[in-house]
Design a protein around this nucleic acid. Sequence first.
DNA 1: TCAATCCGTATC
DNA 2: ATACGGATTGAC
Length: 681
Amino acid sequence: MAEHGEQLELIRRRVRRPPAPRTFTPAPELPIARVVVDVPLAHLDRLFDYRVPASMHESCVPGCRVRVRFAGQEVDGFVLERVARSEHGGRLVPLRRVVSAEPVLSPEVARVARLIADRYAGTLYDVLRLAVPPRHARVEDEETVAPANAGGPDARAVAEAEARWQEYEAGTAFLAALRRGDSPRAVWTALPAEDWSGCLAAAAAATLASGRGVVIVVPDHRDVTRLDRACRRILGGGRHVVLTAELGPAERYRRFLAARRDRVRCVIGTRAAALAPVADLGLVVCWDDGDDLHAEPRAPYPHVREMLALRAHDARSAALIAGYACTAEGAQLVESGWARRLGPAREAVRARAPRVFAVGDSDVELARDPVARAVRLPHRAFEVARAALADGPVLVQVPRGGYVPALACQDCRERARCAACSGPLQLGSARQPAACAWCGRPATAWRCPQCGGARFRAPVIGSRRTAEELGRAFPTVPVRVSGGDRVLAEVGPKPALVIATPGAEPVAEGGYAAALLLDGWLLLMRADLRAGEETLRRWLNAAALVRPGSAGGAVVVTGESALPVVQALVRWSPGWYAERELAERQAAGFPPAVRLATIEGPSEAVRETAELLEPPPSAEVLGPVPIPSGEGDEETARLIVRTPRGDGAALAAALKAAQARRSADKAAGTVRVRVDPHALG
DNA sequence: TCAATCCGTATC
DNA sequence: ATACGGATTGAC
């Protein structure tokens, strides 16, 4: 069987034969490309060198997409630079393919992405995924034209918007600085009922006039629509572009390219726009930075405000952190001297704010009207609503639907927590006893650890129903509902009851005659460390839609007037509250006073990470503690690490190193690391 | 003493 | 996933 053996030998030889030694012609200049590759492993978060064949010399530009062979697989990557020689000792492999010569990644965005990855203990490629939308080849071939509907700005609208800034101390100076090419940084608290979109468009116009670019990020789509309209009027047509994730791949890429190719220098949008490649960046803006929509849900979970602050720092551009409310982070930026406070003059606040009535629990006198009484509406709220409805629409802010309120102690109002696991206690469905929302144990023999009380109070139970039934108390008035997936942008000036969940309040033409904020306790009962700040933010955002007190505008809020949040609303002093909040976080050791990271995942993986972690000496490590996870999942745990702000970079580096070690060791289970998480339950 | 094989590690 | 180097093993 010699023949058979020969055949086997032939086959073996063919299989083993190394690939035919192809002749390789290197690019005539800078024959090495430094590439960031799409691999999820933390220890591979660095650049890799590839040889550039002569055939790719022209197309392989810094910032372009490539395919490369990496660890035996084809992966995507971006070329960050072309260099003459490699530091790498071993053999270099040629680039597989230049996907397109479009330099989608600008040097500025690449730099800032690195800063963001470092700040959040994440990988560069994860941040680049947020910065560069997926490619759409056909769009790339299109001739990029300036966005449509060109036309000059509306001179009157421009003058009006610029005049708005006069109501703020240093407001006009801020605008002037932008126009002359300076880079002021400010935390702006807007006046009630402010035309914020007009103000921001005016700031954008001033920056564009200095020859520089602008990025403005707002929480949601309704805000984008408003701002888009203001920009059309104030910048004129074709000078800005809207960039959001919901656009669809082709349109999103088209607008992204319009910015990258410097056809347009002002990009507005939701958080997908935060890293838009605007040329010669002069101003970044984050509107309503307390809104949790600004917290990116994908790794490494960066926050829009922080991304923009890093961009402003890197590009030496101006920055505006703005809202009706102010976050503790905003106050921190002011306190550290990074930004100036840009607030309204006190007289302007007095002239513009609605009158606010706080209805404390002790002075809840129920309405006499039988229907209002049945739904436990305070007399004051009922009277204000009745009077206002003669004059215009009335806004009723109710908690998000489907929310089951947490319980509190009837006597001291301490949050009721499960004796076994410290989870929040909730009322079950009708006539079910109270039980833990986390572990499900019924809270039969509960006693308040604070005061020994044994009875619960259910804060503002069913205030959504309250609001709906309110309609019956005013049978002649139409009721409109906004919330969930049916969000109204605007309502008319005619009398109506407008029931909305926080964040879904429609703007009323001519302003609301009154607003009832009925969910105070519920908001304050949230386990989150941000509960107070978030409550005030929602109140201010709703109250900002009401007419000034001088025009009869009134707000009723259910909450003790002694509470700082209530005070802050009554006096309309968001800055004061934010400073207070910051001081409290300082005392409690929470961000932004300290840098804090959570590490969550399967218990074993978290334990391993904790062991590998070499945090700076100043660090305090809490846990790991078990946390509730979905049914049947393996046990989950959370570790918390915090350091003084000054050691934040060291903490992030240590977190990254620990993850790198685990990924290099092919350790089982992934942990989720979040630096300064927006919410901490 | 040397080759075949195993294992851990880096991944250009 | 795959390729490489160093260590280990086993045959001479």
